[in-house]
Design a protein around this nucleic acid. Structure first.
Ligand SMILES: NC(=O)c1ccc[n+]([C@@H]2O[C@H](COP(=O)([O-])OP(=O)(O)OC[C@H]3O[C@@H](n4cnc5c(N)ncnc54)[C@H](O)[C@@H]3O)[C@@H](O)[C@H]2O)c1
Ligand SMILES: NC(=O)c1ccc[n+]([C@@H]2O[C@H](COP(=O)([O-])OP(=O)(O)OC[C@H]3O[C@@H](n4cnc5c(N)ncnc54)[C@H](O)[C@@H]3O)[C@@H](O)[C@H]2O)c1
Lengths: 217, 217
DNA sequence: TAATATTCGTGATAAAATTCACTTATAGAA
DNA sequence: TTCTATAAGTGAATTTTATCACGAATATTA
């Protein structure tokens, strides 16, 4: 074990945000059948510095071997473990619109251990319809459903106007995390973890960067 | 004008990434009819410090008034201008699947000046079908289409296996920015701006944070 | 087996980002 | 009109993040 983990140094946020990227690249390397890789080589693929890669990993332990590098398989497993991917996570989706459907239909999430157990909507047109192998339920039954079948994660993909209300129901019903797609900063209720996806913000950042470049020419 | 902009200090990345959040909150305040706001009050809504807010804005100019605060309208317009939202942006989407359709159908983007002029796919089942008021075209015609009707932005929402190939076509055809939804680090070709949305990474971050909390109890 | 080249892990240093704390301006009250 | 409270803007200090650079371990070659 590394000195750093022994000393209980808190892991910087910036490091945590890079863990999924490491996981993604290692998964790719694994698919390609690559057995070993050095911090030098891996960091070049990721367009970061090798020292950043080594420093980041050092927060969690020692996974490589001097003079050799890292075994791709070992490092992949280690990072999977750090991220908690050996566990299964259960979730419900609220909002069976475009985003809600996209999530259900995306196979990548179940591969990573996410099991979606229910999808809810308030529109009679959607209620009862099939999304993947789930039947859309009435959001009126959300709290009851969660009482019977608790889940860890609530996915909010309703329009922004409904998002806070829905989030409160989820939090009251005991979800521990919310994955939020609505462009709103959700008020918390208890110690739930909220992870936001703000697609609009990402687009505006792209706009800014396009103009920035223009200005320099 | 602020001293900082005069001196041509480069704007930190972290600041740029917060601009869309400012825009989002100010838009909300505008809808609510709020006329003025102090850095104190606005920063509390955003859960940042007031000095960070003031420091961030100072990279672009002086938008407030001492002893008074900021006019919501003025600041909103200023940030819209910084982000380049007065302009129209044209884009094509490649990959008429769940994400591609979600983007076309989302009204928030056209409100921000994004005009989607074409959507492409390689699956005969999708080609010719209607998405919003666009007809899905064959990706074989993508390069020709862009020669006739150039756009600034290419949106990549194909499966990861096709993403790089599609991105090269877009870049060759002169797009200046790529908004990428595939879980891959795209190789660039020229000085195109690539903005990634890695939904999977966000989910893994949520997983990590859920476990982190558990460990502390 | 010995010599040499790799490459990790990490303490130290540098850079970037955030917060502090103070000056100045001005709004609003007396 | 004067006084007081508010609040922006900003240089400086602090904190956080990233990079450097080197010692120690190991692989590989001669
Ligand atoms: N689609 C995009 O590209 C995009 C981009 C940026 C942000 N978003 C955000 O993601 C969220 C979902 O977007 P979308 O495109 O899937 O929207 P959508 O309109 O396709 O789907 C929203 C669904 O939520 C349902 N709904 C409304 N009120 C509800 C309630 N109270 N309880 C349960 N269900 C309810 C609607 O019936 C609808 O089916 C929105 O908040 C949107 O702002 C989407
Ligand atoms: N849906 C999600 O929740 C989600 C989550 C994480 C990542 N993503 C990523 O977003 C991207 C899009 O996801 P999606 O769910 O919309 O996938 P999807 O399978 O629904 O849609 C992909 C579309 O691309 C088309 N396509 C395939 N090859 C093509 C090519 N060469 N040229 C043009 N079109 C082509 C397919 O026919 C399909 O219509 C994928 O890269 C996926 O990994 C999606």
């Amino acid at each position: 074990m590394s000195a750093k983990t022994d000393k209980m140094v808190t892991v910087p946020k910036a490091v945590i945000n890079r863990l999924p990227m490491y996981h993604r690249f290692l998964y790719q390397l694994l698919l390609e059948g690559k057995e070993k890789i050095s911090s030098q080589e891996l960091s070049q693929l990721m367009r970061i510095t090798s020292s950043q890669l080594r420093q980041d990993l050092s927060y969690f332990g020692e996974f490589g071997q001097q003079g050799y590098g890292y075994r791709v398989e070992t490092l992949y497993q280690a990072i999977s473990g750090i991220l908690g991917l050996e566990k299964q996570y259960t979730a419900v989706i609220v909002g069976a619109g475009n985003i809600g459907r996209a999530i259900v239909n995306y196979p990548g999430f179940s591969r990573r251990g996410l099991k979606i157990t229910g999808i809810f909507d308030n529109n009679p047109k959607n209620i009862g319809s099939q999304v993947g192998n789930l039947t859309v339920m009435d959001v009126e039954h959300l709290a009851d459903f969660l009482k019977k079948y608790p889940v860890q994660i609530g996915i909010v993909s309703t329009p922004v106007q409904a998002a806070q209300k829905v989030a409160y129901i989820l939090m009251k019903s005991g979800v521990r995390g919310i994955w939020n797609f609505a462009p709103i900063m959700l008020e918390k209720n208890g110690d739930v973890v909220v992870e936001d996806i703000h697609l609009g913000d990402s687009l505006l950042t792209l706009f800014y960067r396009l103009n920035e470049k223009e200005g320099k020419n």
